[in-house]
Nucleic acid binder design. Structure first.
Length: 303
DNA sequence: ATTTTGTCCTGCGAGC
DNA sequence: TGCTCGCAGGACAAAA
């Protein structure tokens, strides 16, 4: 389940492969057009795959950017246009792999980019995604929070690792919501990059219950939750590292995953690492949530 | 208008 | 053994 740290690892991996020297996309094959659809519209119009491929043929990646879990590659299209980007969302199970043409195709491969480079052999960048919650697209770049981002991500808030992230302003915005703390953290329009795992981890680190009301939680605690989110994601980044090998641009599940440092997520029944109380599981915002009942007191006014 | 719920997907493991 | 069922979850449309 890629969240911000995993996506950042993939971003760095793509940088190494695509920007270390000039590269060009010489052909694109969409094996499953559903990867071009949106989360709620997986049936794409016929011709979408051809359109997507045609736009990217001859494109040169200029950089690899990220905001929260959204990633994109500004490109110079074949006609010289530099106002578009290849948009990428890894969804639940998306990953990039680097191959040569003779390598067997993984059955979950959804798209293949044939990449030519200034020196060295060409390679294939394959987007593999078992569950097809991921997304690929070409979008116009538009302004958002002072950055140029693909139109599909313009509504996504800055993430806690962004230099321009304003924790104080975000904490105040959270306080104006009428929901639970965890639901608010998962809302990518307030603060981005936090998914189910890091929401649980940040709340535990800050001693805040997932159902705590955003209205009544003191702003100092809200700030602490945001700070904890930033810390746990930075820790994951430093641990997960960028040890991609020749095959994986980077992983999002198997090796190098950051599970070993988790304090509460997936630890139902196991002792809290801080106080030894068994971790409990509950459902919040339709997602499994993990709390230490002692470190995270349940709010009186639950939501 | 804001908040909550359901849906998209696939594979896996539990239960019968 | 082989089937069904529930679960996992990011993002967003639909419902409340």
């Amino acid at each position: 389940m890629p969240e911000l740290p995993e996506v950042e690892s993939v971003r760095i991996g793509l940088q190494q492969w695509l920007l270390h020297e000039p590269t060009r996309i010489v052909s694109v094959r969409v094996l499953d057009p559903r990867i071009l659809g949106t989360t709620s519209q997986r049936t794409v119009p016929s011709g979408a795959a051809e359109f997507f491929s045609a736009r990217l043929v001859g494109a040169e990646p200029l950089s690899v950017e990220r905001r929260g879990k959204f990633m994109w590659l500004p490109v110079r299209l074949a006609d010289g246009d530099v106002t578009s980007a290849l948009s990428v969302h890894l969804g639940m199970s998306g990953q990039f792999r680097v191959h040569t043409g003779s390598d067997a195709l993984h059955p979950h491969t959804r798209a293949v980019f044939d990449v030519e480079r200034a020196s060295g052999e060409p390679f294939e960048l394959r987007f593999v995604d078992q569950r097809i919650f991921g997304h690929l697209g070409v979008d116009a770049l538009v302004p958002s929070y002072g950055y140029a981002v693909p139109s599909g991500a313009a509504h996504i808030a800055l993430d806690p690792l962004d230099p321009a992230f304003d924790g104080e302003a975000v904490a105040r915005a959270l306080g104006r919501k009428r929901t639970g703390m965890k639901a608010a953290l998962l809302d990518q329009t307030l603060v981005s990059g936090i998914g189910n795992i890091y929401a649980d981890e940040a709340l535990h680190a800050a001693g805040v219950h997932p159902l705590a009301s955003t209205e009544t939680t003191r702003i100092s605690r809200v700030r602490r939750v945001l700070e904890a989110a930033r810390e746990v994601m930075e820790l994951s980044l430093s641990q997960g590292g960028t040890s991609f090998d020749a095959l994986y641009v980077n992983v999002n599940g198997e090796s190098g995953y950051f599970a070993r440092s988790l304090q509460v997520y997936g630890r139902t029944g196991e002792p809290c690492r801080r106080c030894s109380t068994p971790i409990e599981r509950l459902t919040v915002a339709g997602r499994s949530s993990h709390v230490c009942p002692r470190c995270q007191k349940r709010p009186r006014s639950r939501r």
